[in-house]
Design a protein around this nucleic acid. Structure first.
Lengths: 230, 230
DNA sequence: CATTAAACATGGAATATTCCATGTTTTTTT
DNA sequence: AAAAAAACATGGAATATTCCATGTTTAATG
């Protein structure tokens, strides 16, 4: 297989979406000023506070959106799996990046210069609307998660993030968790102890089967019920 | 003053923004299918769960973004003062409205058919980007508020919403509160008692002067400090 | 203007959550 | 492979928050 073909596969997701709205020629302009990169688990792709010089298209892997508060506390705003356009609230926002994007699994990323994409959007309303819609859809889940955090107590919140992992990240009830207990706590906005105790409790009740990073959601209806009660 | 002139003033804010990006002729297309409405305090402008048939441009007044959870709990996602384009996450999102928009002060609203605006955006990338940026800016504060709710405890959260009221709604330290204590609680995600007790405490400490709906933020630096500590 | 409902206010009991101490297991580094 | 560091796990004390009971004030309604 020629190098060209391999590269082709790298950004095929983004290219496929783009070519629905812009010409091959216009896409070449994006290609020329873009780079393909691999990030290892734990590496930062976009950094909070930095100027939004790049938009990232996530080709493969899983990333977390990380917000570091003044008081040093970390919050995971959302977790996202490929293929997705990243850049988040930063995408169309002119200020410095509101949050960091960090790999929680090895990732392949297509880094696009934001001003190049931006210029293209000005003459391609449909493309802009499409990208905006992709963003909005992604953030809807994030907003719902926040509402969960705001209104429910720990069990309901933890149930919500496991349902999120099932429905948006792993797509099956049995998976190898990419997040540590600490990260789960940062996602559900509770203490690490809450995560551990709740998982132990659910294990005893037969709702989940947990062993280290291995997770098996045994009773999804029960999880949904816990989520609903709050 | 002729009726025409009066109407002109009604949607001047939106017209002014729009004409930077689209032609007068194109704006006429929006005008034709749009209506101007007044909403009294408490009335719902856009309803959660309804199809997103309209986008609202808020000409004057103050509105809250209301989310009603399955368990019956209400959350105020954000508070917004005119002039602003509403529609929220709904604006570019195809699903039914994610939340309600409700007047907390008497409002003047320009209701635009979303498919008309949408069609226009397809041929006017700059206009779309401008609207998207307005949205993103509005939601940035909302995201920061959520992070506050998720990470800080009640005093820090309540400090944050009063700083928000100062910086984004009333623009001066002394104002007539549009929200009830219950609504403040729904905004800060705590109990009504927390709001009342905290205000009493701050009153005694000379940080604020509260008497019914009248609020005077006496020591803004102290509020910022409370916000920072969490 | 009397009546009713809603909003405001206070304090203590009940509950939820975090913090801390301690120990084990797993992963990473040398 | 040993040592160090990080992650995982448990339970009780300390703290934060909500819930409940009760009463007052303010706003809405017939």
């Amino acid at each position: 297989m020629a190098l060209e073909d391999t590269l082709e596969n790298y950004y095929s997701g983004f290219k496929k979406i783009s070519l629905q709205f812009i010409s091959a020629e216009q896409f070449k302009r994006i290609e020329k000023t873009s780079v393909h990169l691999r990030f290892k688990k734990g590496e930062t792709i976009l950094k909070q506070g930095h100027p939004p010089t790049h938009i990232a298209f996530l080709q493969s892997g899983i990333v977390k959106f990380n917000f570091l508060s003044e008081n040093g506390k970390n919050t995971i705003l959302t977790l996202v799996s490929a293929p997705k356009i990243l850049g988040g609230a930063n995408l169309f926002y002119k200020d410095n990046n509101l949050f960091s994007v960090v790999a929680v699994e090895d990732c392949e990323v297509f880094l696009i210069e934001s001003n190049v994409l931006f210029e293209l959007l000005k003459d391609n309303g449909r493309f802009g609307v499409a990208l905006f819609q992709l963003q909005s859809k992604m953030f809807k889940r994030s907003i719902l998660n926040f509402i969960s955090v705001a209104n429910k107590q720990k069990e309901g919140r933890i149930a919500d993030i496991f349902l999120y992992l099932l429905e948006e990240i792993y797509f099956k009830p049995s998976f190898n968790l990419s997040l540590t207990r600490k990260e789960l706590a940062e996602f559900a906005c509770c203490s690490v102890e809450n995560i551990i105790m709740t998982l132990s409790k659910w294990q005893q009740e037969g709702i989940v089967l947990v062993s280290g990073k291995k997770v098996d959601l045994k009773d999804i209806n029960k999880l949904k019920q816990i989520s609903k009660i709050g």
